[in-house]
Nucleic acid binder design. Structure first.
Lengths: 263, 263
DNA sequence: CAGTGGTCTAGACCACGCG
DNA sequence: GCGTGGTCTAGACCACTGG
């Protein structure tokens, strides 16, 4: 056997998915049917479908009326440049919500606040001592009631003491970026890191991820003229989100992508 | 059983990895040993280790002297803003190579050239007719002899007829961005999309990916003052790459991240 | 050769949830 | 109820590769 049997089965099913014979939301044949069709044991069939599962092509639904369902590829576009560019008077939280609504979904967010000792990674980005503490503002973002992304933003403690609102576990109406700017901490530069990796079990729970769903991690460090003032870890479910930014003259882009027009 | 046995086993092994008891490159106990330790059948042990495999924590090496090895987390940082920002006189290919070398690795690239009918996705980004053709320049990038990323760049056919070098299946020494600028097609704006997803089987082969390795996809559309002139699909192996960009005043960032200093 | 993981079989019992 | 996937067992043979 040049190709193991379970890969053969997976290939045929995969072809049916990518070619469109099976469409989003359709169900694969149930396991007993596949055992018949391919004269394979149940474990072999499961090895085959596990491949598709971890490729992110299908998910499994237990119980009668369930089965293996072809995943849909609906993605929310998240504009990382919109809300937070220097001199853009739009609050980032409202910007996120309005983006979601504009794309036809329903949005909600859960805030929480913690005081945390900074890890070495974080200390380096915030340029503070590794043993110091920082304010962590966590925002779990839901789309249509389903968790979609997780944003952890850290502020140095001395900054939070200067801008006390940061210590309140509530949404800041105008957005933290704007608030900081009003108090003389305007961010004028951003350092953005993008990483793709598999989720930790904690992230799997928080975001309700299916197996085979990677994470898009966006780490943004914001700088005033004098120093870094915050670091955001934005953890996005890879199957439901993408990030967009622009560089250069946005007006040119807007001519060809009307949805990018500045508001 | 609140927690299935295979998840229990996976949790204990995972804890040993994330806590550092098992370090990068270390081997997990072999399957027969795990069967003993946990009084489990081989399939159950394999279900457990399959979880770690798909979390990207370990990879499996067949054969004597092999085993399940804790993966290392070495990542190459790719500066998406460096080479291609308007008015930056650095060629992107040389920039990629010098970045790799600066980070202590060895770099090589394979070019190839194709003429392709444009898909609807691509047509939209390039703002051309869906049935027209485009030039595809593919560059497979290797680090230390191992494939690391794959870049497909599409140019509209009429542009390639104006700038004939694009039709040559060879590296363009000064880089295509610079070449285009010299011929009056200077790119002054970029539209960047970031996506995290599992690889297709083709990408798995091309990049030599282990199971549990997601893809970081960076799609960059470049615009002159008049229109989009190219689209690059940059497919990065998630376990070996991250992307960095900056917005705003780079000099401020350079004060705290010396490696970001403009060259 | 001997030990590693890779593949495959044939069965079993369970949890879930639609009809 | 009963069909779906979820978990688990016990065994088998194979391919690869270091010692």
């Amino acid at each position: 056997m040049a190709q193991p049997k379970y890969r053969q089965i997976a290939s045929e099913l995969r072809d049916q998915i990518v070619s469109g014979i099976l469409r989003e939301g359709d169900r694969l044949p149930p396991e007993p049917k596949l055992q018949e069709q391919y004269a394979a044991s149940r474990n072999t069939v499961r090895d085959a479908t596990a491949l598709l599962l971890h490729e992110g092509l299908v998910y499994r639904v237990p119980g009668r009326g369930g089965g293996m369902v072809v995943r849909r590829r609906a993605t929310l576009t998240f504009h990382a440049h919109r809300a937070e560019m220097p001199a853009q008077p739009v609050a980032e939280t409202d910007a996120w919500r309005s983006e979601v609504v504009a794309q036809g979904y329903e949005a909600s967010q859960d805030f929480s606040l913690m005081i945390r000792a900074v890890s070495s990674d974080l200390a380096e980005r915030l340029h503070v001592e590794p043993d110091s503490v920082a304010v962590l503002r966590r925002c779990v973002r839901h789309i249509n009631g389903q968790p979609s992304s997780l944003q952890d933003t850290y502020y140095p403690m001395d900054l939070a003491e200067d801008v006390r609102e940061l210590l309140s576990p509530k949404d800041i109406p105008q957005g933290t970026t704007r608030l900081l700017a009003e108090r003389g901490h305007e961010q004028v530069a951003y350092y953005d890191e993008y990483v793709s990796r598999m989720p930790t079990p904690e992230e799997t729970n928080l975001l309700g991820l299916q197996p085979g769903t990677p994470i898009l991690l966006h780490i943004r460090t914001g700088y005033t003229e004098h120093r870094p003032v915050r670091v955001s870890f934005n953890v996005l479910a890879g199957d439901r989100n993408q990030i967009v930014t622009t560089h250069g003259d946005v007006r040119i882009i807007a001519k060809f992508r009307p949805e990018e027009a500045p508001e």
